[in-house]
C-alpha cells in the first residue's frame, strides 16, 4: 500500500481512486448499516426520520422478533436441511468425482457429460415436475423432500469443482496406495479425501451459502409454517408485520447477522468457496 504512494504526484493521481473506493464501500455497506439502524428503532421513530441514529437503541426488539415469530423453527429447519444436504452432496459428489477423475472406463465421458449437464439446468425447468414427483413419492411438503432436491440439483456443481481438483492429484499417490494394498474405497477415503480436503472445503462452503439462501424450491415444495426455512420465514415475517417497518428491519437483521458473523471469521474460505466455480 505504502509502496504505491512513492511520489506526491502519485498520491494526487490516486485521489480519484481513493474517492471511488470510498464511494463504492458506502454503496455496499450503506444499505446494511441503514437496516441495522432501523432494526434498533421503532416504526414511528423511523417514519419521523428514516435515517436517524438509534437513540435510544431498542435492543428488546430483537427478543420481540425472535419470540413473537417462529424464527427459531425456521432457523432450525434451515440448519437441518442445509447441513444434511451439504453433507450428502459432498460425500456423494466426491465419490462420483473421484470415480470420474481416477478410473478410465467406457462411458466415462458420457457419465461426466450427463452429470455436468446439470450445470445448465434452470430450476424453472425442474420445479413443476419436481412438485409432481415429490407428490408421487410422498415427499412433498417435507424437509426430506427438500433435502433430496437440494442434493440432486447441486451435484453437478460439486462434481464439476471436485473432479477438476482431483484430476490434479498426482497418480503416483494412488499407485503407491494400491501397492500398499489399499482397496478402492480406502484409496478414496484415505487418499483422495484428505488430499482433496481444500477443494472439499470449498464445495462445502459454496453449497452451504447457496442452499442457506435458496428460495424457489423451498417456496414451491414446502407449505407448512413449521417446515419453513429461513428465507421463507423472513418473507412470512414481513407479511405479518406489513406496517411495522421497524420490526421487519429487526427480522432482516436476524437473518443478516449470522451470515456477517460467520463471514467475519471465515471470510477467506467463504470467498474462495463462492467463487470456486469461476476461478480455475
Amino acid at each position: 500500500m505504502v509502496a504505491g504512494m512513492r511520489f506526491g504526484f502519485e498520491q494526487i493521481r490516486r485521489l480519484p481512486l481513493a474517492l471511488f473506493v470510498l464511494l463504492y464501500t458506502v454503496v455496499t455497506g450503506g444499505p446494511f448499516l441503514w437496516v441495522a439502524t432501523m432494526s434498533l428503532r421503532t416504526t414511528s421513530e423511523i417514519f419521523k426520520d428514516p435515517y436517524g441514529y438509534p437513540s435510544p437503541a431498542h435492543w428488546e426488539k430483537f427478543a420481540d422478533a425472535w419470540t413473537k415469530s417462529n424464527y427459531h423453527t425456521y432457523f432450525w429447519n434451515s440448519v437441518v436441511v442445509v447441513v444434511i444436504a451439504v453433507a450428502l452432496v459432498t460425500v456423494i459428489g466426491a465419490m462420483a468425482a473421484h470415480c470420474l477423475a481416477r478410473y478410465r472406463f467406457r462411458g466415462n465421458r458420457l457419465m461426466r457429460f450427463l452429470i455436468l449437464s446439470g450445470l445448465v439446468l434452470p430450476p424453472q425447468l425442474l420445479i413443476l415436475a419436481l412438485f409432481q414427483i415429490l407428490l408421487d413419492v410422498n415427499l412433498y411438503n417435507t424437509l426430506t423432500g427438500l433435502v433430496v432436491v437440494y442434493v440432486a440439483t447441486h451435484i453437478a456443481m460439486t462434481v464439476y469443482i471436485l473432479e477438476g481438483f482431483f484430476m490434479q492429484i498426482p497418480q503416483d499417490l494412488f499407485d503407491a496406495a494400491r501397492m500398499d494394498g489399499y482397496s478402492d474405497f480406502e484409496i478414496f477415503w484415505r487418499v483422495t479425501m484428505p488430499v482433496g480436503a481444500p477443494a472439499i472445503f470449498t464445495t462445502v462452503t459454496l453449497n452451504f451459502i447457496i442452499l442457506w439462501n435458496e428460495f424457489l424450491f423451498a417456496v414451491v415444495l414446502l407449505t407448512d409454517d413449521d417446515k419453513r426455512t429461513l428465507p421463507l420465514g423472513i418473507m412470512h415475517f414481513m407479511g405479518s408485520h406489513q406496517l411495522d417497518v421497524g420490526m421487519v428491519a429487526t427480522g432482516l437483521m436476524i437473518a443478516i447477522l449470522p451470515v456477517i458473523l460467520i463471514y467475519g471469521f471465515f471470510s477467506e474460505t467463504m470467498i474462495k468457496g463462492m467463487t470456486a466455480g469461476a476461478v480455475r
Binding site: 450428502l88 460425500v91 456423494i92 459428489g93 465419490m95 462420483a96 473421484h98 470415480c99 470420474l100 478410473y103 457419465m111 450427463l114 452429470i115 446439470g118 439446468l121 425447468l125 425442474l126 415436475a129 419436481l130 414427483i133 433430496v148 432436491v149 442434493v151 440432486a152 440439483t153 451435484i155 453437478a156 462434481v159 478402492d184 478414496f188
Partner: peptide, 16 residues
C-alpha cells in the same frame, strides 16, 4: 462410486 450421485441426479434432475 457413481450410483448414489446418479440416483439422486437421475431421479430428481433428469427425470423432472
Amino acid at each position: 462410486f457413481l450410483a448414489p450421485a446418479l440416483l439422486f441426479y437421475a431421479g430428481f434432475a433428469i427425470y423432472p
